[in-house]
Simulated scan of single mutants.
Amino acid sequence: MLRRRISKAGVVLALALACGTSAHAESSLDAVRARGLIRVGVKTDAPPFGFIDARGHPVGFEVDLARFFARVLFDDEGRARLVPVTTSTRFAELQAGRVDLLLATVTATEQRRTVAELSDPYFTSGSLILVARDSRLGTLGEAAGRKVAVVKGSVQEADVAELQPRAILITVGSLAAGAHAVRSGQADAFLYDDVAVLALARRDPALRVTGAPIRPRPYVAAARKEDTGLIRWVNGWLAKMRRDGTYRG
């Protein structure tokens, strides 16, 4: 996913991006450097972005990205402290100062821009519906009176309320809980990010995906409000990674 290469020009870019920002932003990057590690909130239940492998280690695209940023800062990917977060806890962890940055399938929305600084996009994801293999449900429009599960705090929670207000909304705590709700018959459908839902359906023959992607939105990194220096630094590296082929988003 991410080729491990950092050019001399890239280091110069990082230094330039760290300069010329507000005092608040400079102090944030300075604090990370002084601490000797960057604390990144990542998912552990959202393959392929963040999950636990067979050996019990965190892996995934966003985990790789966190380690890449640590290599840029400290020439050591082990200086990324990976803090497990969930959809419902990630912004609380950020606001409490327990993480410096979120790389946790954060979808960019206007509401989230009011509580955090958001980076440029690094991925785009819509929502898909997961149903039981023998279900006749085809679209969200057909879900009036049906039980639709969503992860608490996700964009899908608001989407269902807006797009199908006659659905019976059920909130769950995780991706796995949403799949279980459908599998056990507690919910008629589960609405979540497309890549994660497709991965669930591939692994479980009792489940399938139906309908077209709903409301594609970008995934972004998030930092505390007014921490513009850190986000500018992230944006600079995302742009450089695209230019030099380290990552093609």
Rank of each mutant, 00 (worst) to 15 (best):
F74Y: 08
S184P: 01
G97L: 00
G138C: 00
T86V: 06
T171W: 09
R112L: 07
A132G: 15
E162S: 15
A179Q: 13
H180T: 10
T171N: 10
G126T: 01
T114Q: 15
A149S: 15
G141D: 08
T114M: 10
A181L: 05
V63Q: 02
V106D: 08
R136E: 13
L163Q: 11
A179C: 14
P48G: 11
I168N: 13
V151E: 11
P58V: 03
S184V: 08
V106W: 04
G60R: 09
A80G: 02
A108N: 04
L94R: 07
E77R: 10
R55V: 05
R98F: 05
T171I: 02
L130N: 15
F74V: 01
L102H: 05
L65R: 08
G50K: 01
A108R: 15
D64W: 06
A143H: 09
A179K: 11
V106I: 07
A80V: 03
S135C: 11
L102S: 02
T139W: 01
A96T: 02
T139C: 01
L130R: 15
V83Y: 06
S125L: 14
G56A: 02
R146H: 13
V160R: 11
D159G: 05
T89P: 04
D76F: 05
I52M: 12
G126N: 02
F61Y: 12
R55M: 10
R67L: 00
F74T: 07
E157P: 03
I129D: 06
V106R: 09
A143G: 06
G60L: 04
V182Q: 10
E157Q: 12
R55Q: 15
F49A: 08
A70C: 06
L101C: 03
A116M: 04
L102N: 02
F123N: 14
L118C: 10
G153I: 00
S119W: 11
V115K: 09
A176Q: 14
G56Y: 03
I170T: 15
E110V: 14
F61V: 12
P58T: 07
E62S: 07
I170V: 15
R136F: 07
I168A: 13
R113A: 13
E93A: 14
S88Q: 12
V85S: 06
G141C: 08
G141W: 05
A70K: 04
V99F: 02
V150A: 11
G173F: 06
D53M: 02
E93T: 06
V59P: 08
R71D: 12
R136W: 09
D120F: 13
F91Y: 08
E77S: 11
K152D: 02
P165H: 09
F91M: 01
R79I: 01
T114D: 09
L175H: 13
L102E: 05
V160N: 06
I168V: 15
E110D: 14
G141S: 04
G138I: 01
Y122Q: 01
L175C: 04
R146E: 09
